[in-house]
Design a protein around this nucleic acid. Structure first.
Lengths: 239, 239
DNA sequence: AGCAGCATTTGATTTGCATCAAGAAGTCAT
DNA sequence: ATGACTTCTTGATGCAAATCAAATGCTGCT
């Protein structure tokens, strides 16, 4: 087994590149891009990729593993702001103040590509398609958070959990996983924090879905029995 | 009175430039930047600057007036995602899919600078400080939304309203307005939507703050009598 | 393997906010 | 100014989810 660091890190032959990178780059541009990732970094389950207050210098692309990000208020309340998986970019919150604004914690052993932000900016100036790509990634995060605001402000517990499951399924499916089965990497409490409900309510709602034959729950293993019904719950308002 | 369009639009002598633009640009760079704003546009109260689904081509900087942005779910529920004032940038939600993702509606007669996004990108490639600035603006929006998520998921009605007032005051103060007085441009219902509560609860909470001598409420005019208490309410968890 | 410590489930009770309702105050158009 | 409409306030009641509580099921460690 060879040490990771002795491999040349290269986006151009990374199997995740269609998730991280713009499509349609020329071979030349692709080669340039290989300069974007400085190194890779492994994080053990429970480890912090970065913490609130840390100096911001780099973005991270997830190669393997699963993360949560969370902000902590002055009085100590923790809020999970997102769950991230392979191919997704982390660290954008740090750009505005040159300090990270949240904690990024691995929910399973993980590996990330370290992309110094000034490399990203330099290359963005040279490769317009990369520039656009970076903008799109940030815009996507803004739009995602708009959706979470809708969820938190307007939806009931069942709708929130249905939305959460459907979102995870869709993202996992884009990575080649089944549409009808998933393993939750986070606890009920973390799900609850993200969805603005208590862990007991998360558990009860899982049980309810299970009773109704919509899903099958075995601890962290969830099997989707009725995808359509899940969508109906998600879309249905109070009527 | 001269028609607006006959004036040369110029960031270099705009009195809002320290809100919109990076600081420390050279005179030469400043001159380049004047190419960023194509035109200006006036929006009447209640008018849409853009709507969900519209093609995205430009960002907007607010010169005067006050806006709300809101997303509408499939089943018709509306969620206010933010309130924007002079110097703030709108339209970032459109970048990811080349379509706007929300409605931007003027809450009072307003004027905006129209900045075609490809101008912004072109100039960003030439002026690294502008590039960084654009990134910071998007990152700031991400961080703001993280804060709203915390508010919606974790806080009680009083804390939410206190947070809302303090945020408005702080932003107005940065624009030269009083720290102890403000005029709400939005209805109780719009505040409620943003804060995830019903208009009746917003009204009741205003009344409660008023009874406790923290603020004075005269319709849309709010006078802050006890700024410290407001902060205490905002920070206090359930204890 | 066995123990300690989390994570999860489920039940009983409380509560903060939503909902329903009605009247008052303010605003706009003619 | 007058009437119509919107916005706001306040009260009474109901409900979804929080809280409190306890038992059970996992997981990881030595």
């Amino acid at each position: 087994m060879q040490a990771e660091s002795s491999f040349k890190v290269a986006c151009s032959n990374c199997n995740l590149r269609e998730l991280c990178l713009p499509i349609g780059l020329s071979t030349e541009e692709m080669t340039q891009l290989d300069g974007m990732v400085a190194t890779r970094k492994k994080i053990k389950q429970g480890g912090h990729l970065y913490s609130s207050g840390d100096a911001f210098t780099t973005l991270y692309a997830i190669r393997t593993g699963f993360f949560k990000t969370c902000v902590v208020s002055e009085d100590g309340r923790e809020q999970v702001t997102g769950f991230q998986m392979a191919g997704e970019i982390m660290g954008l919150d740090g750009i505005v103040s040159d300090k990270h604004n949240c904690n990024a914690i691995a929910l399973e052993d993980a590996e990330v590509c370290v992309m110094p932000f000034n490399h990203v900016e330099d290359l963005s100036r040279q490769i317009p398609m990369l520039q656009r790509h970076v903008h799109k990634i940030m815009s996507r995060e803004i739009v995602r958070e708009n959706g979470v605001m809708m969820l938190l402000a307007n939806m009931r517990a069942e709708e929130r959990l249905a939305a959460f499951l459907l979102n995870l399924l869709q993202r996992l499916h884009a990575r080649g996983y089944s549409k009808s089965e998933l393993i939750l990497r986070m606890t009920r409490e973390e799900i609850g924090s993200y969805l603005g409900m208590k862990l007991e309510t998360v558990s009860r709602t899982f049980s309810k879905f299970s009773d109704e034959g919509i899903i099958e729950v075995k601890q962290k293993n969830i099997r989707i029995l009725d995808h359509e019904k899940l969508k109906t719950i998600f879309n249905s308002s109070t009527c």
